[in-house]
Computed example of a mutant assay.
Amino acid sequence: MKNKFVLNEDIREKTLLVIDENGNKLGEMSKQEALELARQHSKDLVLFSSGDKPTAKIIDFGKFVYDQKKKSKENKKTQVQTKNKEIKVKPQIGLHDLMVRVDNAKKWLESGYRIRFVVLAYGRIGTKIDQIEEVYNKFISLLEDKAVVQSPLKKVSNVQYESFLIANKGKK
Rank of each mutant, 00 (worst) to 15 (best):
L120G: 02
T78I: 12
K106A: 02
Y66I: 01
Q68L: 14
F48H: 05
V119D: 03
V156K: 15
G94D: 08
I11Q: 01
V156C: 02
A121S: 14
S30H: 08
Q131R: 15
I59K: 05
K146Q: 07
Q68S: 15
D10F: 14
D145G: 07
Q81C: 04
S151T: 15
Q92A: 11
Q81S: 14
H41I: 02
E86I: 15
S151P: 02
K70F: 10
V18D: 02
N104Y: 15
G62M: 06
Q150N: 13
K14T: 09
S72Y: 14
I11D: 01
E74M: 12
F64H: 11
K43C: 03
E134Q: 13
E33W: 06
A121V: 05
I59R: 04
P152M: 07
V149A: 01
I19T: 06
K14N: 13
K63Q: 10
K106P: 03
E110P: 02
V148K: 14
K171M: 08
T127A: 13
K57D: 00
E33S: 07
T15R: 13
Q92K: 14
V148H: 04
D103I: 09
K69M: 05
L35I: 08
E13A: 05
K4W: 06
E21A: 11
Q79P: 02
G94S: 08
V89Q: 01
Q131G: 03
I140N: 00
L7K: 10
E110C: 07
G62H: 07
R124Y: 14
E33F: 05
K70M: 09
G170A: 15
T15F: 15
I87D: 05
L16N: 01
T127E: 08
L153V: 04
L37A: 08
F139C: 02
M99K: 13
L142A: 05
I59G: 00
F139Y: 11
A56K: 05
K57L: 08
L7W: 04
V149Q: 04
K146W: 09
G94V: 03
G94T: 06
E28M: 10
I19V: 15
N3H: 12
K88P: 02
I140M: 06
L16E: 03
N84K: 14
D10H: 15
R124D: 09
K128F: 12
E110Y: 14
K73I: 14
L17C: 01
A56S: 09
A105Y: 05
Y122N: 07
S42L: 10
I11W: 09
L95G: 01
V65F: 11
Y136D: 00
A147W: 07
D52H: 12
E86K: 14
L95T: 14
Q92W: 13
E33Q: 14
K70H: 08
Q81D: 07
T15W: 09
K70P: 00
V100D: 08
Q150I: 12
Q81W: 11
K57S: 06
D145A: 11
V156R: 10
Q160H: 09
K43P: 01
V148M: 01
E134Y: 15
L95C: 00
D145C: 06
D44E: 06
V100P: 00
A38P: 04
Q131Y: 15
F139A: 07
R116L: 13
V102D: 03
G123D: 03
K88C: 04
K31Y: 10
I59F: 09
S72V: 15
G23M: 02
K70Y: 10
D103L: 09
N3F: 11
